[in-house]
């Protein structure tokens, strides 16, 4: 009897937490089909409305934000950032973990130091730098500063510290060049860590608002977070359904990615903690 009671309580508490976690997401999708009366009216409405078409039309003709363009921008920026950041971090992490060379300690301490400094410190100098390079309003202004991932170097170095040395030595005896050892033996075996880091970098690029807000001023260059924030701020007439539709559409790529890469997401988030 007592066992049953505590089992019931367990399921009830977990259920409440589950509903609170899921409800705002459910509501976001539902609200994108509703009109303003249903979203912020006198009586709440919790089911699919009939205004999806109207909201979609409003979103397409709003004139300040092109949500599909923003999704494309976000995907391409995050993809290029991830590719470059992960590759450079993997190479640097490998060098720190697997070689002894003059200047290693100094460089490593410098990199360690940078890990302690929050990103906002570089905001203003980067803005000035990007202005001088005439990169304001371009993808490069977002991608370039995100490429040197100090965290990535640490994560990869950590992974390579426990990498079997025998494999590398054997490959050297077989006459492999250092580059061949890295690309043909080390990288394939480090794939779990590499994919975890990829997820971390991708998510970081995808959700970044502050820096893109500073350097992007043009509708055609907006990323998703910037586009959503602008959509909310430029509205003169309230159109809440349209905003929720935009938020829903912007959420879909990440949900789809998650469906395909579920394990990597979890391990990516975990690896940030296992240092």
């Amino acid at each position: 009897m007592r066992q049953k009671l505590s089992d019931g309580l367990l399921h009830l508490v977990v259920m409440i937490g589950f509903l609170i976690s899921v409800f705002p997401i459910y509501w976001m999708f539902i609200a994108s089909t509703q009109n303003d009366q249903q979203i912020l009216g006198e009586s709440p409405y919790l089911w699919i409305g009939r205004s999806l078409r109207a909201n979609f039309h409003a979103l397409m003709t709003n004139g300040s934000v092109d949500i599909f363009r923003a999704i494309l921008n976000s995907i391409l920026i995050a993809a290029v950032t991830t590719l470059a950041a992960v590759m450079f971090s993997t190479m640097a992490g490998y060098a720190f973990a697997r070689y002894r060379f003059p200047g290693r300690e100094t460089l490593f301490v410098l990199v360690l130091g940078a890990l302690m400094i929050p990103a906002q410190v570089t905001l203003i100098p980067l803005f000035i730098l990007m202005s001088h390079l005439h990169l304001i309003d371009t993808w490069w202004s977002i991608i370039l500063p995100a490429v040197p991932s100090v965290f990535g170097v640490f994560l990869m170095r950590q992974a390579f510290l426990s990498f079997p040395v025998e494999l590398i030595d054997a490959a050297r005896i077989d006459g492999f060049s250092e580059a061949a050892i890295f690309f043909r033996i080390v990288v394939p075996l480090a794939r779990p860590t590499i994919s975890a880091l990829s997820i971390i970098v991708f998510l970081g690029s995808w959700t970044n608002l502050l820096w893109p807000l500073v350097v992007l001023n043009n509708t055609s260059s907006y990323t998703i977070p910037v586009a959503l924030s602008i959509l909310e701020s430029v509205q003169t007439l309230p159109n809440y359904g349209m905003v929720m539709l935009a938020a829903s559409i912007a959420t879909l790529p990440m949900l789809i990615l998650f469906v395909f890469l579920r394990r990597n997401f979890i391990s990516g988030i975990m690896s940030g903690y296992s240092r």
Binding site: L107, L110, A114, P125
Partner: peptide
């Protein structure tokens, strides 16, 4: 192996800091 990272690190992190 270090060069690409260190170059980017210098330009977009150390110098701005």
């Amino acid at each position: 192996f270090l060069a690409p990272f260190i170059v980017m690190f210098g330009i977009f992190l150390v110098y701005p800091i």
